[in-house]
Design a binder for these strands. Structure first.
Lengths: 224, 224
DNA sequence: GAATGATCTGATGTATACATCATTAGACTT
DNA sequence: AAGTCTAATGATGTATACATCAGATCATTC
């Protein structure tokens, strides 16, 4: 598949935002980017506009375009929705999961529980994603899975901030086991509930973290 | 607020798609549109690309861009998610609604129950939207409300097809009353459940309708 | 008559020049 | 010195010309 510069730029910028190379609030200067990537303003414009639509970037008219900076309130709202979507995936998965998918999920679970994996945050992060991806697949609702993935992306720039939460890995792993058991035995409500809590705990820890940070004078404002 | 041609075009095309002036599967010819609106290809391109991102339009490389045509399966998936989001709004509204908001909701309910309104599908359609908008507001989660509205938009081109369902208005109105009572008395679970069902009934009727239509040889295919 | 390949066409992508608008900086007036 | 008008700047939006690429068409060859 041949991809245009516009698409490559969009992906590159998205990557940069998600992985924190571009921080929330940072300015995206069209001319500078054009020079940097050796293209004209046109593809830059188009890439940026697409990011605006998907919510990673926003525009202050006549001021410039900036990496979206969410207020704490907005983040909490987003986590609330994320929890619902994940819960829904779990509920559907508990109802619809097929044998092969269940085995894939079990295997992902075991990898999350591997002491070596748990010791390395990056590894755990990756395997954790795998576990959740298995659930998305097992929900047999591609649209839902896509929405969940997209929202997760939008939250990623902020989740980086709280990776180091104390005991989080061990707790998370326990939660995974409960979720797995619920799905395995087809308990839809439990699967939904455990997954919701799993996400909300992250959200809560996260907002604790942010509000702590805020006290230390980072007067970051929302950009609506 | 001064809006660019690109934005106006985006809105115009969106409108045309949502209101059925452009039908799913129809081609969007850049040059033709440029001539039609008396602008160059640039703003057309940008508007169309934004619609692609938001899912109303999709591109077949080197074939052209077309109004998104969803398969029945995709539509069912989307209704499933819509139901969940609406249910969530209801649950949160039952928990968080404030006095003024409750009165607004009551008033919207009464307008939906007005025989004159119920007699006219367009009026009912409008008041129905108002009722649901009140619930969105009362959920006090702007992000959720925005997602719900956006998904509703994406489904609109297809919902037009089933406006005429028998007794739908009367049933819908009854459902509204149940939903209202649940929210009024703070029964979160009931509000959620009733709203989910309210949406799913539409989805079900809708897919009944579509599968009927399909039998008559409209071999419309999904465009992934 | 089928396969191969050259050309044509339509769709797309990109660069660049120019137009517009708002904010800012500065000069001029009072 | 304050206020106001104006020119400069920077960000953005638009038109247009050109470049590219894939698929369709057509012709040539075997």
């Amino acid at each position: 598949m041949k991809r245009s510069n516009t698409q490559k730029l969009k992906d590159a910028l998205e990557e940069d935002i998600i992985n924190g190379r571009l921080l929330p609030g940072e300015k995206l200067d069209h001319d500078a980017l054009a020079r940097q990537y050796g293209v004209s303003r046109t593809p830059i414009r188009e890439a940026v506009q697409q990011l605006v639509v998907s919510g990673l970037v926003n525009v202050k008219p006549k001021k410039g375009t900036f990496v979206a900076k969410m207020s704490l309130d907005q983040l909490i709202e987003m986590f609330e929705v994320m929890a619902e979507l994940e819960g829904m995936c779990g509920r559907l998965a508990a109802r619809r999961i097929q044998t092969g998918e269940l085995e894939a999920l079990r295997s992902a679970l075991l990898r999350c529980e591997d002491p070596e994996v748990m010791a390395d945050p990056d590894d755990y992060y990756y395997e954790n994603e795998e576990f959740h991806n298995c659930i998305y697949t097992a929900s047999h609702n591609e649209f839902l899975a896509a929405e969940a993935r997209q929202l997760k992306q939008r939250l990623k720039p902020y989740r980086r901030l709280q990776l180091q939460a104390r005991n989080r890995v061990a707790n998370s792993s326990e939660e995974h086991r409960k979720i797995f058991k619920a799905i395995e035995s087809g308990r839809e409500r439990d699967a939904e509930q455990y997954l919701k809590e799993h996400v909300l705990i992250q959200g809560t820890r996260f907002s604790d973290f942010v509000s702590q940070v805020k006290k230390f004078g980072n007067s970051s404002q929302a950009t609506s």
